[in-house]
Amino acid sequence: MRLSRKAAGLVTAAAMLTALAPAGAAVASTVASTVASTAASPRSTCYGGRVCLYAGFDFNRGHADLWRDFIQDDADFADNNWLNWDFTNSWHSMNNETSSIRNRIGCSATLWQHPGYTGAHSTFTHDSNDGFLVNNAVSNNRASALDIWCR
């Protein structure tokens, strides 16, 4: 029996989907188990050249996984939303909601209590982590601006 090109293409596509199905199921189960766990945020590692902020203590361990990374100053968090674990917009404002920080920018970074770099502030040197901002001058859920000192 000889198949037309169109029919042969459909048979080949069906065979490829059948062969890929187990791999897709494995990926889906891995993603589901990662989301369900209370491990640290997948973003908790914070890539080099960035300052990463987290809505939860201990880099979101056991909390909703809301995070954001920065490569430059931001004078007012009120116009920023947290990102979800999968990089989608959470539609939840960052203003006065930061609980932990990782600094991988290569220089110092300062969190400020008020927009425009005013009020109480805490400075974090390169490669520093703080999973519990309550013990800092800026404190928990009070940061409204980020100043990066790479000048």
Rank of each mutant, 00 (worst) to 15 (best):
L83A: 11
S33P: 03
A39W: 00
Y54C: 01
V51R: 14
N103E: 13
S93R: 15
R104C: 10
H92S: 10
R43Y: 14
E97W: 04
Y47L: 12
W82L: 03
E97V: 00
G24K: 04
W91C: 04
N103Q: 10
L66E: 03
A36L: 01
G48H: 10
Y54H: 04
R50W: 15
N60T: 11
S33R: 07
A64K: 10
G56N: 03
W85C: 02
A25Y: 14
S90R: 11
L66C: 00
V27D: 00
S93M: 09
R50P: 10
V35L: 08
N89S: 13
G49S: 06
F87L: 12
N84E: 04
A21R: 00
V51Q: 12
N89H: 10
A32N: 01
R68C: 12
W85L: 04
N89R: 13
A26H: 12
R68F: 14
E97G: 07
F59T: 07
A75M: 11
M94P: 00
V31K: 12
T98H: 00
D65M: 02
G24N: 06
S93W: 11
S37N: 02
N60Y: 06
F57K: 13
D74N: 15
T88R: 12
T45E: 02
C52S: 08
N81C: 07
W91Q: 08
A75I: 13
S41I: 08
F77V: 02
A26F: 04
D74Q: 13
D65Q: 06
A32P: 00
